[in-house]
Structure formats: structure tokens, C-alpha cells
Design a protein around this nucleic acid. Sequence first.
DNA 1: GTCTATAGCCAGATAGAC
DNA 2: GTCTATCTGGCTATAGAC
Lengths: 203, 203
Amino acid sequence: MGKHKDNQTEEQILTAAQHVFQTKGMDGARMQEIADKASINKAMLHYYYRNKRLLFEAVFKKAFSLLAPQLNAILNDDSSLEEKIKNFTHDYISFILKHPYLPNFIIQELNRNPKFIEKIKNNVAFPDISKFKEQVNREVESGTIRPITAEQLFINIISLNIFPFVGSPLIKAFTNVDDKAYKTILEARKKEVSDFIINAIRI
Amino acid sequence: MGKHKDNQTEEQILTAAQHVFQTKGMDGARMQEIADKASINKAMLHYYYRNKRLLFEAVFKKAFSLLAPQLNAILNDDSSLEEKIKNFTHDYISFILKHPYLPNFIIQELNRNPKFIEKIKNNVAFPDISKFKEQVNREVESGTIRPITAEQLFINIISLNIFPFVGSPLIKAFTNVDDKAYKTILEARKKEVSDFIINAIRI
DNA sequence: GTCTATAGCCAGATAGAC
DNA sequence: GTCTATCTGGCTATAGAC
């Protein structure tokens, strides 16, 4: 960003690239398709981002930096655990309903290249679990929730929130619901998920 | 299968293809790499499977037909709901620990091409949720578990089971654990997940 | 900054000998 | 059935005019 005079073209490219990479993946994406979507020609892509890999990384970093703040909400604020779970599931599902492609994109590309996460750690605000960990441990010790490690609870929370988006084709097929009905189910999960978790850890 | 005289070569190819497709995906996989892994040459791949797409589909169907029976365990047997959840989470996590690449492969390729599931439905035993649905509804009506729709419970169960594998690079990074420690966490989930679910739905 | 034309490479697929 | 050699197309990337 800011290296060139015309930020508008740069943004156009990034938006087009985002769309193509997120639906086709790094290997399946075609520079020509990105150029067409951005209403420019291939040469411009290279002029602005040098090569396909760098363009991809720009898209990935942008996508990741949209997701990270969402996670920090549950990890690093001062509300009670129950409050946090309620707010997080509601906000997170609302957010992903607006960007349904995001979680799958991130996960797919991290699985393709796990080392990639190291590059990201240096570039975007990276969530930190330590505060959440202390909070969970405190509540377990004081007996206000059932015994559970912070890691397991964290995994449960993000599994229940993220998987319904990542695994949607699978779930739709198994439950035999169409796109519209599935959207309704996801909407209901804004409340359903927090109820489920809170019941699970309540004494 | 069975179209050629030499089933051994066919199996060799399928195993090699499985490995390459599951780590690189359809677009990232190279026929040359598959040939090398199978200790044959590229021409043989085409002789046995005609083209890349058909080879991929053979691999995908085989992978899917490994997963489907696992799901039927929770959907279509006669044990109690609590029993089912216990058995399923334990067996499923044990199974995936042996095939950790499987869920991500299935999900990744279904997201890349959602229509693909239609082809699968005709070829492999496909899980059916209707029996599970009746069972959950009965238990909710009789007041033995908290009110929840069968679809939401089903989504919760498979989310808690599958996501920790699919999202492992992400979770490892957030929780700051290495591969070995993560394996331990997954082992613990054989019990952790069913406890969590049963607490969540218990009155 | 933006374009057209093209270089250069690589991967999937096939021909044809054995 | 198995191999080597090769075709063909498509894709990233660049050269160079404007």
C-alpha cells in the first residue's frame, strides 16, 4: 500500500484478487481472471504486486487481519467468561455471515502451507490466549464452572463457531437442507451456540 | 477397479494419488509427482485412470467412503443418545488420528466444487439423519434433555469432532502449542468432547 | 501508469515402439 | 502393460510502445 500513486487501482486489484483466491485457492486462481474482475490487464497485476505469490500474500494478510480482532474480543477483554462467550459467538457468527468465504480460505491455505503462519505472526496483530487461560483457570478453581482446560474450552468455542461455515457443503448434504434453510440455521446459532457452551460448563 | 488385469499397479497408483491429492489438493497436485510416488511413469496414470480429474474422483470417493460409515454410527444404531455421543466421539477421533488428512481433504474439495457432492450421493452409502432426528425429538419431548433441534445438535457434534483436525494449524498458532502437545490435546478430546456435549444437553 | 504482444516454461495428455 | 519421446495448450511473467 502507498507505494504507488494510484491507490484506487491497487484496491481494485486487491478486491478482485480476494474474490478469486478465496473461491479457487492459490493454485486454482488464474491471474487472467483476477485481471478481468478488476477490469484491467494482466500486466498491471505484475506492475502493482510483482508476482502471483506476493499478490496472494497481500490478500491473505488482509483476510487474516479481518479475523484476528474478532478473536481478541474473546481473549482480551475484561467481561466475565459467560458474557464473553455470549458476545463472541453472537458477534463472530454475525461477522462471518457477512464474509462466509473467509474462514475456509484461511484454513485451506494454512493447511496447504503451515509455515505460512510464521510470516503472518510478524505482520498482523496476533491473538494471545494467555489472559483467557488465566480467567478459565480461576473460574475452575473457584468452582463456578466445571473443570476444563482453557485450551479445550477455546477449541470447543471456535469449533462450534467456525466449522458450520467451513463444513457447510458437508452439513447441508447430511442434514438435507437447502441454502436458505441453512442460512436460517446459522442465524439461530448466534444464540444456540452460546447457550450450548454455557450449559456445558455450568455446574 | 477390476477393469485391468493388474490390480496391484492400480492400487499403487491410488495410494500415491491419495497422498499427493490430500496434501496438495486437486489443483496443486502434479501427475509427475504421483507417478514418481507410485514408481511408474506418467503414461501409466493415463492408461489406468484416463485423466487427472478421473483419478482425483477415484481418490475422493475412496476417502469419502471411509468417512461415511463413521457417521452412520451416530445416525443409525439403536443405542441411547448419550451412549451414541460417547461412542461416536471416541471412535471418530481415534479414527481421524489415524487419517488426519482426511477431513480437510474432503472439506477443501467440497468447498472448491460444491456440486461434487451430488456425484458422491449416487456412488457411496450416504448418511441419513432422519433416525437421529426422531430420537432427539423424542428425548426433548419427554424432557430427558434440554430443548434443541436435531440439526443444531448434529452440527455441534460434528463441529467439535472435526474442526480440531481441519483447523489445526490455526489452533496450534493461537494456543501456542507444538505438534506433540497438540496430539495430546486431541487424545484427551476422545473423552472431553462427549463430556462437554452431554453436559450441554443434560437437564 | 497502462496497454499489446510475446517469451518461456511447465503440466496434462497422447503416439507409438516394445 | 509398460516405456520414451513429444505434442499441445495454458499460464506466469516480461519487453517494450505509448
